[in-house]
Nucleic acid binder design. Structure first.
Lengths: 119, 119
DNA sequence: GGCACCTACTTTCTTTTGGAAAGCATGGAG
DNA sequence: CTCCATGCTTTCCAAAAGAAAGTAGGTGCC
């Protein structure tokens, strides 16, 4: 009997179950730009332009999409400062800070073991 | 001065650097199906059909692609048993077992915190 | 006024990837 | 022979990623 996980919140959640909302969350988090963006925000709130420079090679479209999805899911807060010049700051929420830890684990594993992969 | 990370293996690797081979590896690992497949293989070597049933909703094409990429990168071993009936077993390599840990961290974070995300 | 510049996007277009459905090859069993 | 099982591959379509250019609100310069 496979573990079931319907949308109700009293079930035990299972990322392997197709209908579990876990799936959508995993799909959002298990993503290159998400892992990099959340990692960048661990250093503190950052503006759009700073993130764009840090995540080398990201296009503004994809960065906007990534940040909006993270905001919608509750991992990131977006604050507009209407001061001159206008700017926007992105910061991790408490949940975002929580998920930053496993993501940092993944990023640092890659950096630590790249030589073995290339060798 | 941004951290540089060219293809040579004497540099310090940086997932934020566009030209670092880290990027390709992160892109492979930071993926829904990769995270689920490697997690499934933590229970021991598994056959194609078993993985397909476990990763609910994966199509055979995408599962094949995922497993082949993981094999090419050195995370998974693919063994064909020409016995009757023919079957194929996928198993984690040492590297695969290593990366399974941070990926498990991510999966289990999602399962543990889903209620907060939905609430 | 008119033009350049800044920030933060949005739009458009092309390429790449993902996903559903069906087909194929091999080798039994009946 | 047909039917089934495993492990894919092929085909087709839709969704997403990526590159390039454009937009919009406001400041400052001359």
């Amino acid at each position: 009997m496979p573990t079931t996980c319907l949308t109700g919140r009293h079930d035990k959640h299972d990322v392997y179950a197709e209908q579990c909302p876990c799936r959508g969350v995993l799909d959002l988090l298990a993503n290159k730009w998400t892992a990099l963006a959340i990692g960048a925000l661990e250093d503190g709130p950052q503006r759009f332009g700073a993130l764009q420079r840090r995540l080398e090679g990201v296009s503004p479209k994809v960065l906007t999409q990534t940040l909006r999805r993270l905001e919608e899911a509750g991992f990131v807060d977006r604050t507009v400062y209407p001061a001159v010049p206008l700017h926007v700051e992105y910061a991790l929420t408490e949940l975002g800070a929580g998920v930053a830890e496993p993501l940092r684990g993944l990023r640092s594993w890659v950096e630590r073991h790249l030589d073995e992969l290339l060798g």
